[in-house]
């Protein structure tokens, strides 16, 4: 894989994270917008903030790589890591809340739309990045 692929990956995922972050904050502040319902974006300032942070890290990497700077790579790698990490946080939260709903007998009231959240479904992009570049990134890490 060359840098061009990483730039493309970083740019697409960075823009997606940043846009979804802004939309999530906007929804939290201004309420739902009918035309954006299909994107399954709940209003949550904190989630929106995290999406923006991940997007910023990825785009900072892309900016450096465009300028021919090799130090852009770590930003793309860390962006991928954050994407996967926060996706995992959301997945665990989802499982836990599902288990709780089952315990208190509210399982039937829940729908897939309630569970959907950009941090969760955008993490698929991070997982793809990790599968492709993970080995290169984690070289030299040893167990404590």
């Amino acid at each position: 894989m060359n840098n061009g692929m990483k730039i493309l990956f970083g740019a697409v995922s960075g823009v997606l994270y940043a846009v979804f972050g802004l939309l999530q904050i906007a929804r939290a502040v201004f309420g739902p917008v009918e035309s954006l319902q299909a994107l399954l974006i709940p209003g949550n300032i904190f989630n929106g903030f995290v999406l923006l942070v991940i997007g910023s890290v990825l785009l900072a990497g892309v900016r450096r790589l465009f300028g021919g700077r090799e130090d852009g790579m770590p930003f793309v790698y860390v962006g991928i890591l954050l994407s996967v990490g926060f996706g995992l946080v959301e997945l665990l939260a989802l499982c836990a809340l599902g288990a709780d709903a089952y315990l208190v007998g509210e399982w039937a009231d829940r729908s897939a739309a309630d569970a959907a959240n950009p941090l969760l479904y955008l993490a698929v992009i991070g997982v793809l990045g990790l599968l492709v570049w993970g080995k290169e990134f984690f070289r030299g890490v040893w167990a404590a």
Partner: peptide, 29 residues
């Protein structure tokens, strides 16, 4: 690996937002 991660997580502009995001993740969990 340490060098690469440090360039990002100790970045002048992104370091604190990343720290806050991680703390939020910790409390969400």
């Amino acid at each position: 690996f340490s060098d690469m991660v440090d360039r990002v997580v100790t970045n002048r502009y992104l370091g604190i937002p990343i720290f806050l995001a991680l703390m939020w993740g910790a409390f969400e969990l």
